[in-house]
Design a protein around this nucleic acid. Structure first.
Length: 204
DNA sequence: AGGACGATTAACT
DNA sequence: GTTAATCGTCCTC
């Protein structure tokens, strides 16, 4: 199998559309917040130059190389945390970035974590916003999403992808921008606005 | 040891 | 539409 074909049928691409409509439950500091996922992006491993796992394991990405079903949280832009579902097994690093969702439980706690937010639909509209309103960050990196006793859990993941899934290019990346590896629920108001990533700066 | 660059957001004009 | 904020990570000397 060619590298490209492996990526085209990789674990992140298979899982990503199935996560739409699933629920991410967070119970931290006595606060329960539940988000219904509406937008995700697939990041494969060695075959995907946009993936954090592209150049092999590092301290930051070690969770991506571990067992599937865990949360991979990373810090970016010096101020934001984003969260992924790890889905590769046997040495294959892959993950699905959780880009947006609808807060369906615990809106009060979500507002408390996002005081600058103006509209309810914006509480988890964007990857860093979603992580913030669920309280995800360094302390939740590596959390087991499938254990009933875990403070962060993934629930109601269907066997097959739901209806109404739209597909398009990933957001905010500067390489492999042509791959249509972003999935969202078409027409859902909590899906983030499309904004192309800036290209890698050219050396003159 | 140094520097470029983010899987972004909020606040501007 | 543009831009500042802000710092860990990783690549290149």
């Amino acid at each position: 199998m060619t590298p490209d074909r492996a990526a085209l049928s990789g674990p992140a691409l298979r899982l990503a559309p199935r996560l739409l409509g699933a629920r991410l439950v967070s119970e931290l500091a006595g606060q329960r917040v539940v988000v219904r996922l509406t937008e995700v992006e697939a990041y494969e491993g060695a075959d995907d130059p946009a993936s954090h796992a592209f150049r092999g394991p590092t301290g930051r990405t070690s969770v991506m190389f571990g067992p599937p079903g865990h949360l991979y949280c990373y810090f970016t832009y010096g101020m934001h945390w984003c969260a992924n579902v790890v889905c590769g097994s046997d040495g294959v690093a892959a993950a699905v970035l959780l880009r947006a969702g609808e807060v369906v439980e615990g809106a009060e706690a979500a507002w408390a974590r996002r005081p600058a937010c103006r509209a309810e639909r914006d509480l988890a509209r964007g990857p860093a916003r979603l992580a913030t309103c669920l309280g995800l960050g360094a302390a939740t990196n590596g959390a087991d999403l499938c254990s009933p006793s875990s403070p962060v859990r993934l629930e109601s993941v269907p066997r097959r992808r739901p209806r109404g899934v739209a597909v398009g290019p990933r957001i905010g990346i500067s390489v492999a921008t042509e791959r249509p590896w972003r999935f969202w629920l078409d027409g859902d108001p909590t899906v983030s606005a499309y904004k192309p990533g800036r290209p890698t700066r050219q050396t003159l």
